[in-house]
């Protein structure tokens, strides 16, 4: 498991401070803390629980409800294969299956070397460019077996 550093604890605390007292702040707090640490392990949830004075079980419930939050570390790069209708119709599933085989990783998991986290997403809204795939913040269009590895080779 990836370690939470001193730096990260400091950041977490400052995020909590910033939002303390604001109603409904839990989700933005979790989002920012996940940006800092890369994931939301129990220790981080407990810290937030104390800081915002919200029961830990409540926070756990929120973390496990929303698919954006993860309790396992993500890879250095996130690969999201779109399985929205248009991409599905144009072969998105085949791309996903291919990546699962090639990287020996399940959907939602991370490669052993922590290089890639693989996920499927429901529609990136780039349907005109199906099948689509997002790596980190970059969206790629018309992805297929022909070009998928080439794209990913660019991400160490």
């Amino acid at each position: 498991m990836k370690e939470i550093t001193e730096e990260m604890w400091k950041e977490i605390d400052s995020v909590v401070q910033r939002y303390k007292g604001k109603p409904g702040a839990l989700i933005p707090v979790l989002q920012e803390c996940q940006n800092v640490c890369g994931y939301l392990p129990m220790e981080v949830q407990e810290r937030i629980s104390k800081g915002l004075n919200i029961p830990g079980s409540f926070i756990y419930g929120v973390v496990t409800f929303y698919s954006f939050f993860t309790m396992v570390p993500k890879g250095r790069h996130t690969v999201k294969v779109c399985l929205g209708t248009a991409c599905y119709v144009r072969g998105g599933k085949a791309n996903l299956d291919y990546l699962q085989d090639e990287f020996e990783v399940e959907v939602g998991g991370t490669t052993r070397d922590l290089r890639f986290s693989l996920d499927s997403v429901r529609c990136l809204g780039a349907c005109g460019m199906a099948p689509a795939m997002v790596v980190d913040d970059n969206t790629y269009a018309q992805v297929s077996r022909k070009n998928i590895m080439e794209i990913l080779d660019g991400y160490e």
Partner: peptide, 23 residues
């Protein structure tokens, strides 16, 4: 207010519940 990856939060009351910081 940013969503966190839940399709159901497009539903009116679920959206409001989400803004309130809940599931």
């Amino acid at each position: 207010y940013q969503g966190a990856g839940a399709f159901v939060c497009g539903e009116e009351t679920a959206l409001m519940t989400s803004i309130e910081g809940k599931r």
